[in-house]
């Protein structure tokens, strides 16, 4: 039986893992390679590394971190942040990523999704969408949540899937870092609108939140960062609880 995935996310700034609240107030949470290996050993089904302050200036730092993180990691590894063109994606794959996540650049140029998928396959392209509630709908934001686009998140998810994205990584900006639960309404709306897997992100605080987003939100995978880094929720323990609640998970692994 296909299991629901638990994904550990490492937000990286200047080569270090950091965590903020609602995209702000960053705190240090360790070395990316060490964090990734520890999470994988603990039962994480995938690792996502996001360079949240990506600029061309720190691309080297990022590629170095990707290489060292990929070195001894044998679960799927996604990298995002600062990927603006096909060559950027190629460099990140070359450094050891299995998938790349693109956000702002894809909103500006949806063909970038097709280009990367055409060369590396759809399974290697994750369209990351940062969405925020606005007047009864969900608006897409870019540039690390700093710039509103006026676009509807559900529409954009449909278009990204049609362009060849293999998965959607959907972050609720309202819930990010708050630990008060995933936005199940947002996740469900997107999951029902498209036929590719949806990874729910933003708001994980307890095992109950994961159960809710898999049942009510119809998510295929759920991603969390802060609760894993700071030991609030242990992945192995979380998986036991999901297993006990009859959510199919890779456990024991």
């Amino acid at each position: 039986m296909l299991t629901k995935r638990i994904i550990a996310c490492l937000d990286m700034d200047g080569g270090r893992v950091v965590k903020g609240v609602r995209f702000k107030n960053l705190r240090d949470a360790g070395d990316p390679a060490e964090c990734a290996t520890a999470h994988a050993r603990n039962g994480a089904d995938e690792i996502v590394l996001l360079d949240i302050t990506a600029t061309s200036g720190n691309r080297r730092t990022m590629l170095h971190a990707v290489r060292s993180t990929a070195h001894s990691l044998f679960v799927p590894f996604t990298v995002g942040g600062g990927i603006r063109q096909l060559d950027d994606a190629a460099a990140v794959f070359d450094a050891g990523a299995d998938k790349i996540a693109i956000n702002s650049a894809a909103v500006h140029d949806p063909k970038l999704i097709s280009k990367i998928a055409g060369r590396f396959g759809s399974q290697a392209v994750v369209a990351a969408i940062d969405a925020k509630r606005a007047n009864g709908s969900f608006e897409v934001f870019v540039a690390g949540g700093r710039v509103p686009t006026g676009r509807d998140a559900i529409q954009w998810a449909r278009e990204a899937a049609a362009c060849g994205a293999g998965e959607i990584l959907l972050t609720s900006m309202d819930r990010d870092g708050t630990q008060c639960g995933f936005d199940c309404e947002l996740v469900r709306a997107v999951a029902e609108a498209i036929s590719i897997p949806v990874i729910a992100s933003g708001g994980a605080g307890s095992a109950r939140d994961f159960i809710d987003v898999f049942r009510d939100g119809r998510a295929d995978a759920a991603l969390a960062a802060s609760i894993f880094h700071f030991g609030i929720e242990n992945i192995a323990q979380l998986k036991r609880e999901l297993h006990d609640a009859s959510i199919p998970v890779r456990w024991p692994c």
């Binding site: 039986m1 296909l2 299991t3 629901k4 995935r5 089904d45 759809s122 399974q123 293999g166 998965e167 036929s195 590719i196 897997p197 295929d220 995978a221 890779r250 692994c253």
Partner: peptide, 10 residues
Amino acid sequence: VKSPHVGWNS
């Protein structure tokens, strides 16, 4: 079922 089939299966 959703396609692609992505994830850990037994």
